[in-house]
């Protein structure tokens, strides 16, 4: 295993938070993901297993929506939550615009960008997770990136 369990924990949490936009829920799902994963597996050591971990997390997030009332519920619980870190010095608004712009992309495109750049997961692992070929991941990444740039240009992001 190249990464320690605590690094993986942080990444899964980030992923869940990106999906749920609520700290408590994200952490609950992160822990459940671990418990579920380790109920069947002993170790995380290769891409396929890492992909499986993300699959569990994603399914749990989806299940959570289904149990709740879907999107309205999401708006409710994420009302007061924001991507706030201890580091306030960085350009908050710029980050916000970028996140909003991401939301205009299709789910698959969003996910590729998130996993690739935020969690820094290899194309191989993403391919296993999404169930598509590596080449398809690569194409999806390119397309998503240029689309995002287009949107951002409209938002005057680059001024």
């Amino acid at each position: 295993m190249s990464e320690g369990l605590d690094v993986i924990y942080d990444k899964i949490y980030k992923y869940c938070y990106y999906k749920m936009e609520n700290k408590q829920i994200a952490e609950d799902i992160t822990q459940e993901t671990f418990l579920k994963y380790f109920a069947q597996n002993i170790k995380i050591e290769n891409g396929r297993q890492m992909a499986y971990l993300y699959t569990i997390a994603k399914n749990l997030c989806t299940d959570y929506y289904r149990k709740g009332k879907g999107e309205e519920r999401r708006a409710e619980w994420s009302e007061n939550e924001e991507y706030l870190t201890e580091d306030f010095s960085k350009n908050l608004e710029r980050k916000y615009v970028l996140r909003q712009a991401m939301k205009n992309l299709e789910e698959g495109q969003q996910e590729v960008l998130f996993l690739r750049y935020v969690n820094e997961i290899s194309i191989k692992e993403i391919a296993a997770f999404m169930g598509i070929s590596r080449f398809a991941v690569y194409r999806l990444e390119k397309a998503a990136l240029s689309l995002l740039q287009q949107i951002l240009r409209k938002e005057d992001f680059y001024d």
């Binding site: 295993m1 320690g4 369990l5 002993i42 170790k43 995380i44 050591e45």
Partner: peptide
């Protein structure tokens, strides 16, 4: 305890 976790 599997080796990977044991080391940590």
């Amino acid at each position: 305890i599997p080796k990977v976790h044991a080391k940590e």
